[in-house]
């Protein structure tokens, strides 16, 4: 993506921020102040819009550093990060219902397999890891990790 397109993108982002900020209510009656909740975001929206516009016009050249990883970003390269993001999304949506001890081993094993870890190792780490983490955080440090389906036997976990 060129900086020109990015600049135009930020003009759009800035415009959205401006639009939303201007819709925020005026200062409340109980406070005698001329600046409401929209004051600060409005400035920020304007800054983003102007900076984006300048970027689209000037198209600044990047000072490229020798960095081997940035060559040729093909769309294939985004597949595996997308799977990782999807795994996080599944955890966000379903961990409360399914529980950490059910969902985490599945996700961990899957990511390990995706990273071409030998199958038996992946299963071993995938199951032992979350159990150890659960004992450490939920039992010792009392972080309320979701029990989900295991809630009925929660007294024993």
């Amino acid at each position: 993506m060129t900086n020109r397109f990015l600049g135009l993108g930020f003009v759009a982002v800035g415009a959205v921020i401006l639009f939303l900020s201007l819709q925020l209510p005026q200062p409340m009656a109980a406070t005698r102040i001329a600046y409401g909740p929209g004051f600060f975001p409005t400035i920020l929206g304007a800054v983003v819009t102007i900076a984006g516009l300048l970027m689209a016009i000037i198209n600044p050249a990047d000072a490229f550093e020798e960095d081997e990883e940035h060559d040729a970003f093909a769309w294939r390269q985004y597949i595996r990060p997308a799977i990782v993001a999807a795994a996080a999304l599944v955890y966000i949506l379903f961990s409360t219902q399914l529980g950490f001890l059910i969902l985490a081993p599945i996700i961990l094993t899957m990511l390990l397999v995706m990273g071409r870890v030998v199958l038996w190792q992946a299963f071993l780490i995938g199951i032992a890891g979350p159990v150890i983490i659960y004992i450490l955080f939920a039992k010792l440090l009392l972080v309320p990790l979701p029990l989900g389906l295991l809630a009925p036997i929660g007294a024993y976990l």
């Binding site: 990782v84 996080a88 985490a104 990511l111 990273g115 870890v117 190792q121 780490i125 972080v143």
Partner: peptide, 19 residues
């Protein structure tokens, strides 16, 4: 190996953000 380390860090991040 990193392909083992990264997934484990991923799980810690899930917990860290939550906790």
């Amino acid at each position: 190996r990193l392909n083992i380390l990264m997934p484990i860090i991923f799980i810690f991040c899930l917990i860290g953000a939550f906790a």
